[in-house]
Structures are given as C-alpha cells and as structure tokens.
Simulated assay, not measured.
Amino acid sequence: MSDWRLLLTRPAEDCAALAQTLAAQGIFGHCLPLLAIEPLAETPEQRSLLLDLDRYDAVIAVSKPAARLGLELLDRYWPQPPARQRWFAVGPATGALLEAYGLDAHWPEHGDNSEALLALPAVQALLNMPDAQVLILRGDSGRDWLAAQLRARGVRVDFLPLYRRVLPDYPAGTLLATLREQALNGLVVSSGEGLSNLQQLAGAHWPEVARLPLFVPSERVAELARAAGALDVRNCHGASAAALLAALADQSESR
C-alpha cells in the first residue's frame, strides 16, 4: 500500500488524524481540507426543538461536529438527558462522543453510512413503534435519504441544523499545484459536499484532476463522482480510516 500518495480533504482536525493513521501504515497523506465547520447562530426554532427534546424517541447525530455541538446544547438545556431516549450515530467516531457523554448510544459496527444505520436492530425496533419521532442533528443540509427512509416507514422526522460546511479560501491553482508538488496519485473525499468542493477548487483543471483514482465513502457519492466525470472511482463502503485502508489494500492486491 505504501506506493499510494493521497490527497486528504476532510476538515482540518479529522484530516490530520487520518494522515497520522495512514502514516502508521506507510501511506503518505497530504492534507488540503475542503470543508470547514462554521457553527450556526442559535435560532428560536432550534431552541424550541431543544426544549421539546424529550418528545423524541431517538436522536441521530450524523457527524462528529453534529455530536459536539448537539452535546453542548444538551448541556445547556438539559442537566439530565431525557430518560429512555436512544441516541444513534452514523459511525463509531461520532458514537464514541455520545457514549463518552453517558448517552445510550448505538452505531453500526460495519459500515459507517445511512444504510448501515438503518439496518441496526435498534433502529428496526424504532421503525416498528407507533408514532415514533426522531430528531436528526446535522449541518444545514444532508442525510435527506435517511430522513426519507424513516418517513416512508411512518416515523416523524425533524432536523436540527447546527453548522454549515464551507470551502476554505485557497488561492487559484492551489489544488493542481499541490497534486504536482507532492506527487500525489490518489484523492479521498468523505461526502458529496466534499466532492463538490473538490470540483469547485479544481475549476478548469477538473478534467485533469478527474483522471486520478478517487476514493469515496458510498455508492451514492460514487455515482455523483462518475456523473461529474471522474474516471476512476473507488467505493470504500464507509468514511472511516479503516474503510479507506481496506479499500487501499484491495486495490493494491488487484494491481
């Protein structure tokens, strides 16, 4: 796997952690964060949802920023979390934050995506409850597919937007210069939004960038990448470091 030299695009803190994990396996990763987290100002709508938190049977945190910001608000409005409420996370890193807080948290052991979350027995039990209500902690967009699946099963779903993800301000030509200077031979994005920002930063150089192997977390993002013109899309079946390492190992063995 050590011949891979990857562009990593997660938010800065996550990017640095991923680069360190890859380095321990002899894989070079260069960080160029394409997503920055900006907390949203609290609104009356947010406050209302939080004050009524105990009416939800379950709360889903879709990311580590959603968990961190959501727990800060939970601390502010609820000295004790609502009893008998279940909390879910899409992946283990987010789930660990919830569990460390002392919540009854559940997340998929295999696959950190919406599909794996829906397959959890605890979520299936929730789907069978009459008049179930779920609150999804997220950014200002995302996880619409997850909400649609829950609603199709009769679950009432509300969103609590806590942050927005923006493309950091880079000088023109930064992406291509970075790829060349660091001799990178692969790209990693963790979401559809990250893919969109990659295209935006590439600008007129996107056709050249799109020839590189592109590692993505799910088939949905893979389809977006192919539609955008990416020529070598590789589905990691998850956004975790372990999922990326497994995909890299598979690709190396198939060479």
Rank of each mutant, 00 (worst) to 15 (best):
W145K: 15
D104E: 15
S48C: 14
R55F: 05
S141T: 12
S196I: 12
A61L: 04
H106V: 06
N128G: 15
A36V: 02
P79D: 07
R84M: 09
E42P: 06
V90M: 11
L127Y: 02
L18A: 13
Q199D: 07
D52L: 14
R151E: 14
Q182K: 14
Q124W: 00
P82K: 07
R165H: 04
L150W: 07
M129Y: 10
P171R: 10
G203I: 08
L160V: 07
A36K: 09
E45T: 12
I37S: 09
D54R: 14
A89I: 05
V221W: 00
F159T: 01
L51N: 12
A147R: 08
M129S: 13
G91T: 04
C236M: 11
A36L: 07
S2K: 13
T94D: 08
A225I: 06
L32R: 08
P108F: 03
S252Y: 09
L51V: 13
A204W: 08
E72T: 12
E109G: 15
V155F: 05
R143G: 01
S48Y: 10
V59Q: 06
H110W: 09
P65R: 09
G26H: 13
A222V: 04
L212P: 01
L98G: 06
P168Q: 03
A105R: 07
L127W: 01
G154V: 08
L40V: 02
A89W: 00
V233Q: 02
D3K: 11
F88A: 05
Q80I: 10
H110F: 08
D3A: 15
V59K: 03
R153V: 05
R5P: 01
R138N: 05
R84V: 06
A24G: 10
D104C: 12
L71Q: 09
P121G: 10
V221R: 03
L126T: 04
Y101I: 03
G238E: 04
P39W: 00
A132F: 08
R234V: 07
A241M: 11
R86D: 15
F215V: 04
A249R: 14
I60F: 08
A89Y: 01
L127M: 14
R68L: 14
Q124F: 00
A66I: 02
S114Q: 05
P44L: 11
G192L: 06
L224C: 00
P79Q: 09
A222M: 08
A222W: 00
L127C: 12
N128W: 09
A204M: 12
A172P: 07
